[in-house]
Design a protein around this nucleic acid. Structure first.
Lengths: 231, 231
DNA sequence: ACGTGCTTGTGAAAGCACGCACAAAGTGGG
DNA sequence: CCCACTTTGTGCGTGCTTTCACAAGCACGT
């Protein structure tokens, strides 16, 4: 019997862990640039803003990549997380809706790290089509299917007004894109098997407002606030 | 030393519920514009992309605002959720970092709904300071404290490069801002009692990449899809 | 007045996520 | 070789989330 490979890791990394891996990765890359060779869970957790036990448990889902008494080798861990997240391959991204936000996204240089390549920019406005943004010529939305096919787009980014978002999403799906990042303030309806994530400014503001109000309401009375010690 | 009461949370609407209220609110406002008077949990849940039982439980945290056999009165529910989220009062927002993203945010008209007013735009770049964006003149970052004080800013939005974000956050906090929305790809360090939310494009992309890879890996095999987020 | 039909509100169960605390495992000094 | 020290990996208790399933409540037709 051949010895088992270094832990091919089972399917089933908790969603909450997946959401934190990019944060760890970024912290690790910062350490790497500073020339740090190894890091303890305590130190890395600090840099990532999480509890060290949580970090260790998260990393344990990828396998046993640390050395007891020492810590984690930065470079190795960067590689493992990158691989796990699928960043060792290239992802082709198309952005639809080249308004202020679309331009901001297109110009957002280092897409975290490498791994993501902006393959095309699309817009419906004739005044925008043809203009050059981030070294790419904006193409008309009618070319969406063609672009997806020819450039092998696997991630679609929607930065259009709310009214156009569902239509664009459907076209992406129809064209075979199964990962969509939606910035428009609408709930997208897509078939099973398609992964949609949304980023919504106004929702974030509203959540902040809720907590701010909560804090203001109880002020003076309810001194029970999370951490605000009054002596 | 006084032992902490077992229930630090007195007025608790679950965090998960708070995060969904804005989604319900938006769906309700769409119904309102279409002239719909009442809506069932099933229908509203559909529009919001959640399970109807979850929606009912969420709403039950606000009180008993539905009528059995009928549903919820749209207008009334809009008001209740708005009030709960603190949208019946005005929140003054300052945006720091008027690059592509800052401009996109400033021009993002209906901030969800009313409730949020952009009070000031700030930047460090002399070429940007003085220019008019979204009917506001961009002011120099040195005026941050003054602006926060004079305009009663209660929410700070950070749209600067990563390197400047922590500094800006600290100045916001120092000036008394306790709610921060961070678009810069760094973990902000703030004292207890300050609420920070982050929006991070590259993290979202990386999460999409993870799932996309997972799907590709197990294609044909592993038919068991772990229930991808649909809707 | 009363039954029928629909929809809410909510126990209860199952599933996740978090963080403590500690055994296991490795390092380095004597 | 053994011991003291450090740090990982994880079992376990706790609390939050989601979902099911159904009794309770309300409207309306007869």
């Amino acid at each position: 019997m051949i010895s088992r490979p270094p832990r091919p890791r089972e399917r089933g990394i908790p969603e909450a862990t997946v959401a934190r891996l990019p944060v760890y990765l970024r912290a690790l890359q910062a350490l790497q640039e500073r020339g740090t060779a190894t890091v303890s869970s305590e130190a890395l957790a600090g840099a990532a803003g999480v509890n060290s036990a949580k970090l260790r448990k998260d990393l344990s889902h990828l396998g046993s990549y640390g050395t007891r008494g020492v810590g984690y080798e930065v470079e190795y861990l960067v590689y493992q997380i990158s691989r796990e997240l699928g960043l060792t391959q290239d992802w082709s991204v198309a952005i639809v809706g080249i308004g202020n936000l679309g331009r901001a996204l297109a110009n957002y240089g280092g897409f975290g790290t490498r791994g993501f390549r902006i393959a095309a920019l699309l817009d419906a406005d004739p005044d925008v089509v043809g203009r050059t943004v981030a070294s790419l010529s904006v193409r008309h939305i009618d070319n969406l299917e063609e672009v997806v096919r020819d450039k092998g787009v696997s991630i679609g980014v929607i930065a259009t007004p709310a009214g156009s978002a569902q239509g664009v999403a459907s076209r992406f799906v129809e064209a075979g894109v199964t990962s969509v990042l939606n910035f428009a303030p609408v709930v997208l309806n897509v078939p099973d098997g398609v992964d949609v994530r949304k980023v919504d400014l106004s929702i974030e503001l509203q959540i902040l407002a809720f907590h701010a109000q909560r804090r203001a309401d109880g002020d003076g009375r309810d001194a029970e606030r999370a951490g605000l010690e009054v002596t």
